[in-house]
Amino acid sequence: MVEFLSGAVTLAYLIAALFFLRFWRKTADRLFLVFTVAFVLFALNQGLAHMLAVYHEPSSFIYALRVLGFVLILIAIVDKNVSSGKSTR
């Protein structure tokens, strides 16, 4: 069950990343580019954790990918607000 779900979640992250990529190309809003990268990182985290059987290693680079994804999103949110005096569209 875990194997099946792990694969499904990995693919779902990748599909979501493709949507974000399309949104970025449509709107040129760099927030979407960051979400694209973040969701690819989430997919890598999910896929690699399973393939390399690393499940409970918080210091592993595999989970660092996931944390890095959220750090990027956090930076994108800050960026969105710092640059919102002018239009970022």
Partner: peptide, 23 residues
Amino acid sequence: IRMIYALRDTRIQSFADAFKFRK
């Protein structure tokens, strides 16, 4: 032209705009 296209995609834009605190 890019901006005109961008502003047309308002639903997609609303996702990005959700991350603005103000306004």
